[in-house]
Amino acid sequence: MTATETSQGAAPTTTRRLTTAKAMSEGIAQEMAANPEVFYLGEDVGAYGGIFGSTGGLLDQFGPQRVIDTPISETAFIGLAVGAATEGMRPIAELMFVDFMGVCLDQIYNHMAKIHYESGGNVKVPMVLTTAVGGGYSDAAQHSQCLWGLFAHLPGMKVVVPSTPYDAKGLMISAIRDDNPVVYMFHKGVMGLPWMAKNPRATDVVPEEAYEVPIGKARIARPGTDCTVVTISLSVHHATDVADRLAADGVADAEVIDLRSLVPLDRESIWESVARTGRLVVVDEDYLSFGMSGEVVATVTDRDPSVLRAPVQRVAVPDVPIPYARGLEHAVLPNAGRIEAAIRAVVGA
């Protein structure tokens, strides 16, 4: 799929609608049914179905040998998944919150991401590390971060971050089939969970058959001509809502690009759009400094800064831990108000 297609560009054969969570677990289930080497392990992924709904129904379908509730030791089950992947399995390990990566980062970036390189290409580690990211529901500093910039910074693993049900399923299937370790980050706010504030786009048409969404390809979530909003995950929905409203109000016709993958990063799609619109807003729910937003800007300025007709606007979490108090948390998140202000600034409206 190219960036000029929409996510549903594959001409859906169904009108069936699923939440992102159900689309994700359906993708896992289809790959598990097709391939006995695929198994899922993590905390509360069995009877509970994943605390954010990532594994609903899998235990009933595949049993406890393949949907494994692990002891509470993130280092262990990620290290085990690495070992099992070197044996020829295709494990999926779920880190309940990305914030917990501090417990097990050695296994992730020193082993999962490096064994292929260190072995001179002899040993593959075809595993998926799934993890829940994002805030907006008063879960405070240690359960609300995105941290995708950190994972994307470290060589040797792919990083995907779906925002829609269609992409959640297709990227999951691609991730499982990929021979590289893939970090699959799902925002709690896109899953369509009953207890979270729901974006209407968290439920959408999802084909019943197995399909892949290519890793490393962005998509245009909303075509536009006046400026480019590059974003990812839940912010795609916020940005699209704002862009629709500003277009209806005659303020600006903003193009929204959903990166979908951070590694590989689809620099060509970023460049193509910004070269066309001349104006760039980056919306990132990760921290402002040293992260995705800076990388997106550099993608343009490394190539030709003269295409920019206005200073770039970055809407990201300021460099503070995620606050607990609701008012403070919503002040740091890239919400609709901040996105609108950035679009207005970049188009001079």
Binding site: G79, L80, A84, T86
Partner: peptide, 11 residues
Amino acid sequence: VLHAAGYAMGI
């Protein structure tokens, strides 16, 4: 040692 345990899991 974890990788060994994981490899054993695959076996």
